[in-house]
Computed example of a mutant assay.
Amino acid sequence: MGKLTGLSEANLAFDLPPGIAPRPSRPPPPRRKDQTSDTEPEAGPEGHRKRLRDKLLRAGPEALADYELLEMLLFLALPRVDTKPLAKRLMARFGSFGRTVSAPEPELRGVEGAGDAVIAALRLARATALKLMAEEVREAPVLNNWERLIDYLSAALARESVEQFRILFLDSRNRLLADEAQARGTVNHTPVYPREVVKRALELGATALILVHNHPSGDPTPSRADREMTAEVKAAAATLGIVVHDHLIIGNGRHLSFRREGLL
């Protein structure tokens, strides 16, 4: 059978019944602005969010820049807003993801777009991280888990703008019973009452303590008042058979151990 060439609707019209014209070809309907093909990436904020989520799930958080992690966190607070500009403003103001989630509320409110929902999301991220770190510290005797303890205390205290005095209450196996803030003070002083420290230790059944406070200046060098307070707490605890294992001062990226420095 011979090969047919040059066929078209016009020269095939003789095959149609009399009086019926061939149907004209129609162009495909125009694509809506919000419609994408299976092979084209989604456009707009939703497409950008999807790409970030896919990147996180496919390659892990290490594949994301700090501002991208912050941007994704802000999705929770601002579900209908493009959060990339705000994430970049926060990073420009505070310098890193960690400093942003730990920033004081008044400073956060000074950044355009950072309202209650944003601040709540940042506080939630910080609280979640501290909870995870605290659970890791509880899993083993504190004295055998020193690096994790320092990491946890640094995350909790290094960026505080005022002094905070905390006590780690330990059981007879040096496991963490409680980590409690006993007092908050000024930028360079926190009042500590040895009697209250010992009273709380008895309430918890603690047999040992680790004293902790921060220096907002970033310099962990102990002051004369720090040394005197440590000696007073140690003496008050000793009368009831409670041991003070150490006093840690947390600075900005640095810390000091009274025991390692021979001060306890």
Results as ranks from 00 to 15, higher is better:
156 A>T: 10
178 A>H: 06
210 I>Y: 01
208 A>H: 07
207 T>N: 11
29 P>F: 06
248 L>Q: 01
36 T>F: 15
84 K>H: 04
75 F>Y: 12
129 A>E: 09
60 G>F: 11
51 R>F: 06
141 P>G: 10
130 L>Y: 12
31 R>I: 11
171 D>N: 15
108 L>A: 09
117 A>R: 14
151 D>E: 15
76 L>Y: 10
220 P>Y: 11
170 L>S: 06
261 E>P: 01
164 Q>Y: 05
53 R>M: 08
259 R>S: 05
258 F>S: 02
197 V>P: 02
185 G>Y: 06
3 K>D: 14
96 S>V: 07
51 R>K: 14
152 Y>P: 07
15 D>E: 09
163 E>T: 06
22 P>A: 08
100 T>W: 00
183 A>L: 04
86 L>M: 04
25 S>G: 08
37 S>C: 15
79 P>N: 03
65 A>C: 07
22 P>N: 01
215 H>D: 01
84 K>P: 04
104 P>G: 11
255 H>K: 02
102 S>T: 11
78 L>F: 00
84 K>A: 10
211 L>C: 05
231 A>C: 09
72 M>R: 00
78 L>M: 05
249 I>N: 03
134 A>L: 13
233 V>D: 01
117 A>C: 12
27 P>V: 09
130 L>C: 09
106 P>Y: 14
28 P>V: 09
234 K>L: 07
125 A>C: 10
114 A>I: 12
84 K>G: 00
75 F>C: 02
100 T>L: 03
158 A>W: 08
78 L>Y: 05
124 L>F: 12
147 E>Q: 15
189 H>P: 02
185 G>E: 00
152 Y>R: 05
147 E>M: 12
129 A>V: 10
23 R>H: 09
223 S>L: 06
228 E>N: 13
250 I>S: 08
150 I>L: 10
128 T>N: 14
195 R>Q: 15
192 V>C: 04
165 F>Q: 03
30 P>G: 03
51 R>N: 14
99 R>L: 15
143 L>Q: 05
83 T>D: 00
187 V>L: 08
151 D>R: 03
222 P>S: 04
177 L>R: 07
187 V>W: 06
130 L>W: 08
220 P>W: 02
27 P>F: 06
131 K>H: 10
17 P>F: 03
255 H>L: 07
58 R>G: 04
4 L>H: 08
244 V>F: 02
174 N>T: 08
221 T>Y: 05
154 S>L: 08
147 E>W: 02
47 G>A: 15
220 P>I: 08
7 L>H: 07
21 A>D: 14
73 L>H: 07
80 R>P: 02
177 L>F: 06
104 P>F: 08
258 F>R: 05
163 E>H: 04
114 A>R: 00
119 I>V: 09
234 K>H: 06
187 V>C: 03
146 W>F: 12
